[in-house]
Design a protein around this nucleic acid. Structure first.
Length: 843
DNA sequence: AGCACGCCGACT
DNA sequence: GTCGGCGTGCTC
C-alpha cells in the first residue's frame, strides 16, 4: 500500500474528513489502519490516525505529501475501533477525530514540537546580495541575527519555545531567518506522557574506597557526607526524592556529589501499577441459586454461539448479579475471548475492584478516572498488548482495545452517567451494542431498575439492532427478604405539630437502631441543588458574572466558584446588594441534618458524604471504609450513598425528602425518583438482619413513590409508559437537542428560529412532518426555540430546539444538514451549534 | 484550529 | 507612500 487516508487532529467542520498521504518506503511495512502518525498539514505538523490504506491515488499525486513520522510501533487502535469511530461520528454528529480521541488515553494525544536548527547550506555571511536588498537590515538587527544564529549553532536544534522565551522581542528576526533559509524548522509530535522515570541516586564508589572517600570530606561538606553515608547504609539505589526528604537536604547537595563523581543520578524507568502492593484475596465461584443458574445458563448458551446477543438482566437489589457477571466472564475467558465490565464511576470502589481482582487476579486491568494520565496509559497498554483479558472501568471502558471481545457487561445500566455530556456525546450502551455486533459478542445490561428504554426494547422486541432478551431475578441470593418500606406523609407531621425534619416514625427507628448497635443510611435527595450563597434580607443570590447560574459555595476555601467557567470570588460577609449581615450559605442540607441528628441523639456518630466531604482524592473511599468498620452509626449523604453499597449491618434506610427530584422539569423525573428510592431501599437488610425503610414525602401518593415502596418495578413501568406514550416521550420517540450559542443574544435567537423553520420545511418536504400522533403517521416535531436551562455560560447566550421524532427515520442526518446550513450563513466563527442525540440531561 | 493571503485606514 | 487591521479560505 502506497497511500493512506488520515483523519487529522484539527477538529473543525472544514477538516472533518480524511486527507490523503503518501507512505514513505521505510514505513510501508508498519503503517496500518489505526496507526497514529505525524503528518504535514498546512504549515505545521499535526497528529492523525490512519483510517484506510490505498494503492491507487484518488487525487493528484503531486499534491500529496508523505507521512512524516509513525508514532507507535503497534497501532493504538485496532481496525474495529476505527470503524466504530466513523459510526459514532454519524450517529452522534461529532467530528471523527473527537470519537477517535475518546478511544485512546490522553497520554497519546501528541502535539507538534517545533525545533529550529542552522541550515548547513546557508550561511549568514554568504547570503546573496539580492536577499540583503530585499530585506534592509539595521545594525541592531544584524547583531541580533548573529547572536541568535550563534546560539542555535552552539546548542544544536533548539525548541522554538525556548528560543522565543530567550529572545522575546526578536520573533520577527527569527521568522525572517527561517524564511531566508538561514535557519530551518522541523516539527515532531511529542506525546504528553512518556514512560515514567524517576531520578534515582546510585552510589558510584566501591566498598573499599568508601572509608577513604568519607575521610576526604572537609568539615564544610557535612551534608554531602551524610548523604553518602546514608546511601552506604541503605546499600540500595534510592530515589532523589527519598534522599532529599529523609535527610532534609536539597538537590544541590546531591548534585555536588555527582560532580565529584561519587554518585550517579539516573533516570530509572518504573512501571506504574495503581494497585501495587495490594493483596487481593483469591475467591472462587459461589454456588448459584436456582434463579441465578437459569439466568447463567441462558447467557452461557448465548456466549457459546459466538454470535451477537443481548440480555437485560433485571434482578432485585441483592439478587447476586455480580456473581453472575463473574461466572459469565469465566466462561467467556475459557472460550479464549475477552470481556469488558462497565460500572458507574461512583461504584468503581476498591471493594468492587477487589471482587474482580480476587477472581481473575492479574488478568484484570482497571480503568479509573482517578488514575493519573500515566497510570491510565499503562493499564490501557496492558489491554492493547493482550496482557489482560478483562477490563473494568466506567463509561470509556467500552473502548477497551481488545481484539477478540466476547462479553460486554454494563452494570446499573439505567445510570445516566453512561451518557457522555461532552462531545462525543455518546451513550455507552449504544456503543456497547455496536461493538458487540462487530465482534459477535454478548452484552449483559444489569440493573434492579432498568431504564425504560431498555425494558421497552426487551418487551417489544421491536428494535432489531438491540432487542435484548429479558432475564429476571426476583429474590435475593442470600435468602433475605426485601426490606419493609414505610411511606410517611410529612404533611401529617406538620399538621400534628412536628416541625422537625424527622418524622416521629423515623425518629423512633433511629433510636431503636442506636440501642441495638445497628447501622443506618440516611439519604437527602437534593438532586439539582448545590450550595449557594443567599441574603436573607433582600433575597440576593451570588451568581456568576459570565454565566447565568448561581455560584457554588466551597467551605474549605471559603470562596464561591462557578461550575461552568471556573470563576471564583471570596464569599462575602455582608450582602453586596443591601449591606445586610444576614448572608447565609444554603447547602445540600446534609450539614443541617447532621446538626439536628446530633441534637436529637447526643453522641450519635455520623459520617457525612456530600460534595463538601468527598472532593478530596480518595475521601469517598475513606469515608465508606470508616462506616464499614463500624466507626459510625449513620451514613448520611446525597445520591452517592444509594449506589451499590453493601453493608451487612445496615438495617434502616431513611429518605429525608423523597420528592425533591420529582418537581424537576425533566420527563424522566418519576423514573429517576423510582430508581433512587429502589436503589437506596436495597441498601437495607441485605444479609441476615432484616431491614426497614422510611420514605418521607410531601406527595406520598405519587406512583413512583408507591411502587418503589412495594418494590414493584413492573407496575411502575406500566404506569410510566402510559405517561410517556400520552406525551410522546422516549421510548415512544427519539429526542435530539440542538443548542445554539454566541455572545450576542439576538443572533442566537434569530438563528435558532431559522433552524426551526428550515428543519420543519425540510421535514415537510420529506413527508415526515405532521404531528406526533401515536406513531401511526410519519412524525417529526420541533419544539422551541427556547432559552436553554442555563441561558448563559461563559458569557455566551444559549438557546435550544428539541426535536422529537420517530425512531425509524434518520432525523440526525437532516439535523446535521440544516445545522450546517445555519452555521454557514453566520459569518462568525464564535457562533456554535451543538447537537445532542438522545440527550439525558434536560435541565 | 492555525496561519497566510489580501484589501482598506493612521503613521514615519 | 508603508505598516498592519483582521475577514476569508485552505490545509492531502
Amino acid at each position: 500500500m502506497e497511500m493512506a487516508r488520515v483523519i487529522v487532529d484539527v477538529p473543525s467542520k472544514g477538516t472533518n474528513r480524511p486527507f490523503d498521504y503518501l507512505i514513505p518506503e521505510s514505513m510501508r511495512d508498519w503503517i496500518e489502519v489505526g496507526s497514529r502518525v505525524g503528518v504535514p498539514f498546512g504549515h505545521r505538523t499535526v497528529q492523525g490516525f490512519v483510517v484506510s490504506l490505498h494503492d491507487k491515488p484518488e487525487m493528484d499525486i503531486s499534491k500529496m505529501k508523505p507521512i512524516q513520522e509513525l508514532l507507535d510501533l503497534v497501532p493504538p487502535l485496532p481496525p474495529d475501533l476505527v470503524e466504530l469511530a466513523s459510526w459514532m461520528s454519524e450517529k452522534y454528529a461529532c467530528h471523527e477525530m473527537t470519537a477517535l480521541q475518546a478511544m485512546i488515553p490522553s497520554a497519546l494525544k501528541g502535539k507538534a514540537e517545533r525545533y529550529v536548527s542552522v541550515s548547513e547550506e546557508s550561511d549568514l555571511d554568504e547570503e546573496e546580495e539580492s536577499d540583503l536588498l530585499l530585506i534592509p537590515k539595521t545594525r541592531e538587527e544584524e547583531q541580533w541575527e548573529r547572536i541568535i544564529v550563534g546560539f542555535i549553532r552552539q546548542n544544536g536544534p533548539v525548541r522554538m519555545e525556548q528560543l522565543s522565551s530567550r529572545y522575546p522581542e526578536q520573533a520577527g528576526i527569527i521568522k525572517s531567518l527561517i524564511r531566508r533559509g538561514v535557519l530551518q524548522e522541523t516539527q515532531n509530535i511529542r506525546d504528553k506522557v512518556q514512560k515514567k522515570t524517576l531520578k534515582t541516586v546510585i552510589l558510584n564508589v566501591s566498598e573499599n574506597e568508601t572509608e577513604q572517600v568519607l575521610q576526604s570530606f572537609s568539615a564544610k561538606a557535612r551534608r554531602q557526607k551524610e548523604v553518602l553515608q546514608f546511601l552506604l547504609e541503605m546499600n540500595f539505589p534510592m530515589t532523589l526524592k527519598e534522599v532529599m526528604s529523609v535527610l532534609q537536604v536539597t538537590a544541590g547537595t546531591v548534585k555536588a556529589l555527582e560532580e565529584k563523581g561519587y554518585v550517579k543520578i539516573e533516570e530509572v524507568e518504573v512501571f506504574r501499577d495503581p494497585y501495587k502492593g495490594r493483596k487481593f484475596k483469591p475467591t472462587s465461584p459461589l454456588p448459584l441459586t436456582k434463579e441465578q443458574q437459569t439466568v447463567f445458563d441462558s447467557i452461557t448458551r448465548g456466549l457459546n454461539t459466538l454470535n451477537y446477543g443481548a440480555y437485560l438482566l433485571h434482578g432485585v437489589t441483592g439478587s447476586g448479579k455480580t456473581e453472575i457477571y463473574l461466572q459469565t466472564i469465566e466462561r467467556c475467558l475459557s472460550l479464549g475471548r475477552q470481556a469488558i465490565v462497565m460500572v458507574p464511576e461512583i461504584s468503581l470502589t476498591p471493594q468492587m475492584v477487589e471482587r474482580f481482582k480476587g477472581r481473575f487476579g492479574s488478568r484484570v486491568a482497571v480503568l479509573h478516572s482517578r488514575l493519573s494520565g500515566g497510570e491510565r496509559y499503562d493499564e490501557w497498554r496492558k489491554i492493547r498488548e493482550g496482557k489482560v483479558q478483562v477490563a473494568i472501568g466506567a463509561r470509556s471502558a467500552v473502548f477497551a482495545p481488545f481484539t477478540n471481545l466476547g462479553l460486554i457487561i454494563m452494570d446499573e445500566e439505567h445510570e445516566t452517567s453512561y451518557k457522555q455530556e461532552e462531545s462525543p456525546k455518546y451513550h455507552a450502551r449504544d456503543v456497547a451494542i455496536k461493538r458487540a455486533h462487530q465482534h459477535g459478542a454478548v452484552v449483559i445490561l444489569g440493573s434492579a431498575t432498568p431504564s425504560l428504554e431498555s425494558y421497552y426494547a426487551a418487551r417489544s422486541q421491536s428494535n432489531s439492532e438491540f432487542a435484548p432478551i429479558l432475564l429476571e431475578m426476583h429474590s435475593r441470593a442470600l435468602g433475605s427478604n426485601l426490606p419493609e418500606v414505610h411511606i410517611i406523609d410529612m404533611r401529617n407531621e406538620l399538621r400534628d405539630g412536628n416541625r422537625s425534619m424527622f418524622s416521629r416514625k423515623l425518629h423512633q427507628g433511629i433510636a431503636a437502631r442506636l440501642e441495638r448497635g445497628e447501622q443506618m443510611v440516611l439519604l437527602l435527595n437534593r438532586r439539582g441543588y448545590s450550595t449557594f450563597v443567599m441574603c436573607r434580607t433582600c433575597g440576593y443570590v451570588a451568581s456568576c458574572p459570565e454565566c447565568d447560574i448561581s455560584l457554588t459555595y466551597h467551605q474549605k476555601s471559603n470562596n464561591m466558584r462557578c461550575h461552568y467557567c471556573g470563576y471564583a470570588a471570596p464569599a462575602p460577609a455582608i450582602c453586596p446588594d443591601c449591606g445586610s449581615e444576614h448572608i447565609r450559605y444554603f447547602g445540600t442540607g446534609t450539614q443541617r441534618v447532621e446538626e439536628e441528628l446530633a441534637k436529637l441523639f447526643p453522641g450519635i456518630r455520623v459520617i457525612r458524604m456530600d460534595v463538601d466531604t468527598t472532593t478530596e482524592k480518595g475521601s469517598h473511599e475513606r469515608l465508606l471504609n470508616q462506616f464499614r468498620e463500624k466507626k459510625a452509626d449513620v451514613l448520611l449523604g446525597t445520591q452517592m450513598v444509594a449506589k451499590g453499597l453493601d453493608f451487612p449491618d445496615v438495617t434502616l434506610v431513611g429518605v429525608i425528602t423523597a420528592d425533591s427530584a420529582l418537581n424537576l422539569p425533566d420527563f424522566r423525573a418519576a423514573e429517576k425518583t423510582f430508581q433512587l428510592l429502589t436503589q437506596v431501599a436495597g441498601r437495607a437488610g441485605r444479609h441476615h438482619l432484616p431491614g426497614e425503610v422510611f420514605i418521607q414525602s410531601y406527595t406520598p401518593d405519587h406512583y413512583s413513590i408507591i411502587h418503589a415502596s412495594r418494590h414493584d418495578y413492573s407496575n411502575f413501568v406500566r404506569e410510566e409508559l402510559k405517561h410517556r406514550m400520552a406525551l410522546s416521550y422516549p421510548p415512544y420517540c427519539r429526542l435530539i437537542l440542538v443548542t445554539f450559542s454566541h455572545e450576542k443574544l439576538p443572533l442566537v435567537v434569530r438563528m435558532a428560529e431559522n433552524f426551526s423553520t428550515e428543519l420543519q420545511a425540510k421535514a415537510r418536504k420529506l413527508g415526515w412532518y405532521g404531528g406526533l400522533d401515536r406513531l401511526t403517521s410519519a412524525a417529526l416535531e420541533v419544539l422551541g426555540p427556547v432559552a436553554s436551562p442555563i441561558p448563559r455560560i461563559k458569557n455566551r447566550y444559549r438557546f435550544q430546539c428539541m426535536i422529537k421524532c420517530r425512531g425509524d427515520i434518520d432525523a440526525v442526518e437532516l439535523t446535521k444538514q440544516v445545522a450546517s446550513e445555519i452555521e454557514n450563513s453566520v459569518h462568525d466563527a464564535h457562533f456554535q451549534i451543538s447537537i445532542d442525540v438522545d440527550p439525558q440531561m434536560l435541565m
